[in-house]
Computed example of a mutant assay.
Amino acid sequence: MWCSGLRKRYGKRTAVDGVSFSVGRGEVVGLLGPNGAGKTSVIKMLLGLVRPDDGEVLLLGRPGRDPRARERVGYLPELFRYQPWLTAAEVLTLHVRLSGARVPAAEQADVLARVGLAARSGDRVGGFSKGMQQRLGLAVALVARPELVVLDEPTSALDPLGRVDVRDVVLDLRERGVAVLLNSHLIGEVERVCDRVVILDRGRVAASGTLAELLGQRELRLRLDGLTPAAEARMAAVGAVTRTGREVTVALPAGEEDAVVPALVADLVGLGVRVHAVEPVRISLEERLLGILREEHA
């Protein structure tokens, strides 16, 4: 999925102003920003639900305005309602027919099982809780074997167990080479599953990039006793060292944290240093998001 220069005005208000980004196959991209930032408007333009005033959209190699482009797209909107007199299985069958795909009943049942509704497939939707309806909406987004899945607040009505289930589904989609665009206010969930993040503010892209690019370099915080010149040289070989009393902070090389940290700690112990605490640290996505938005509004 690719979009460039998307713009949309509603009367005198500019909702989206020059938004550009892409989502590759097997990639999960998170869309973040405060309420009113333009996230849902962008999603609706991507899916042809709202016509942009300017800009281009490509869905799976076809222009966004081409109905055939949307045949392989799964969508979970933030707000939706299904016919309360239908069962969960009937809702899925209806949406399979609307999509034009051929999905056997057994495969539809498997999709309901993936979202935790296997035991409720024959129950009428009118009796479902908000969380169960959210699970059904996710099943509808997945049932026609999409190659691009757009999820708008997929965990809004779910308990912690439901959020874990959605996370597992998203990671499974990525493993199967499906492109996923995820809009969520739950920043921790975005941080766990997304490869890249696009931050919108007042209709514009305030920042974008991989988590490593947005969050910056990771550091290792150590509390040590018995430091020797040899131990200090060993830490300096890893990265810049800052020392405050017994606490030492070492900058870690990007992408090598998992290999560097155990080796460094083992070497320090071998050099006679007493290691009381080891804490890898990095600014959280929430802190980075707030910092970006404060800079934008300053």
Rank of each mutant, 00 (worst) to 15 (best):
V19S: 03
Y75A: 11
T14S: 13
L59Y: 11
R13L: 09
N35L: 03
G18E: 08
L31R: 02
A88L: 06
E90N: 13
E78T: 09
G11D: 09
T93P: 00
E27N: 04
L117F: 14
V50W: 00
D53Y: 07
A88F: 06
A106V: 13
D66G: 11
T14H: 06
G122F: 05
E90M: 09
V91R: 00
Y10S: 06
A106Q: 14
R51E: 12
R72F: 06
A89E: 15
R13G: 00
V23E: 03
A89V: 09
K44Q: 09
R25N: 06
L46C: 08
G74P: 03
K12A: 15
L92Q: 02
I43P: 00
G36C: 10
G11F: 06
P63R: 06
V50F: 00
A101L: 10
L79C: 07
Y75K: 11
T87I: 05
L49I: 11
E56F: 03
D53L: 04
L94Q: 08
E107W: 05
H95M: 07
Y75L: 08
V115R: 00
R97D: 14
I43Q: 00
A109S: 14
V42H: 00
V57Y: 06
L58P: 01
E71N: 02
L92K: 00
A89P: 09
A15K: 02
E107D: 15
G48H: 02
L76N: 14
T87N: 08
R68P: 04
L49G: 07
Y10N: 04
R13F: 10
G100V: 10
L32M: 11
K44G: 01
E71Q: 14
R81E: 15
E27T: 04
S20P: 03
Y75V: 10
G74A: 03
P104W: 04
P34G: 04
A106D: 15
W85Q: 14
A89N: 08
L117H: 13
R13S: 10
L32G: 10
A88Y: 05
V91P: 01
V103N: 11
R120M: 03
G36D: 12
R65K: 13
D53W: 07
V19W: 02
D110T: 05
D110H: 07
L32E: 10
R68T: 12
L60Y: 08
T40H: 05
V103S: 11
R102W: 13
S22T: 08
R97A: 15
G74V: 02
V103H: 09
Y82L: 05
L32Q: 07
L79K: 13
T93D: 15
V16R: 01
D17W: 07
S20K: 01
D53G: 13
A88K: 03
R120K: 09
V57T: 12
I43S: 00
R120Q: 10
Y82R: 01
N35S: 11
R81G: 14
L94I: 02
R70K: 13
G116P: 02
G36V: 09
P84E: 12
Y75S: 12
P84F: 04
F21Y: 02
L86I: 07
F21Q: 01
Y75W: 14
A15Q: 06
A118I: 05
T93A: 15
P104V: 07
L76H: 14
S99T: 10
T14A: 14
L79E: 15
G26T: 00
R70L: 14
V29A: 04
G48R: 01
A109F: 03
L112D: 08
V115N: 01
Q108H: 12
A105E: 15
M45P: 09
T87Y: 08
